[in-house]
Amino acid sequence: MNLVEAKQHVALKVISIEAGGRAQRAQRHMGMGRGAHRMSRHAMPRHMGSRRGLRIQKRLGDMGIREGTIIRKVSQQAFRGPIVVEIGRMRLAIGPFMATAIKVEELE
């Protein structure tokens, strides 16, 4: 289950962070522009996907989210808007596509 699908106000454990599956569709939003996206369809989708994944991992890591971190989903805006999560006492707004890359499991 990824962060978009997860329940709100429940302790969630991050299992992995990877830009695969639905998150790959998000390349355009995660950093690949429309033009580049079109190009990547012919040239290097898989390669770009993994590089995206690394960048997501780094940015989340800088904020303290990595495998094993316990987080809590606080709110989610309508129409696939940003998601607010709580890590310790910090709150973070994460876009929906980055959130799909965060795989979690519910605790308790």
Partner: peptide, 17 residues
């Protein structure tokens, strides 16, 4: 948004108390 080439990343920001 349609015609400018380049990247449009998502929001990613801390929300202070």
């Amino acid at each position: 948004a349609k015609f400018v080439r380049g990247e449009s990343p998502e929001i990613f920001t801390e929300i202070p108390p």
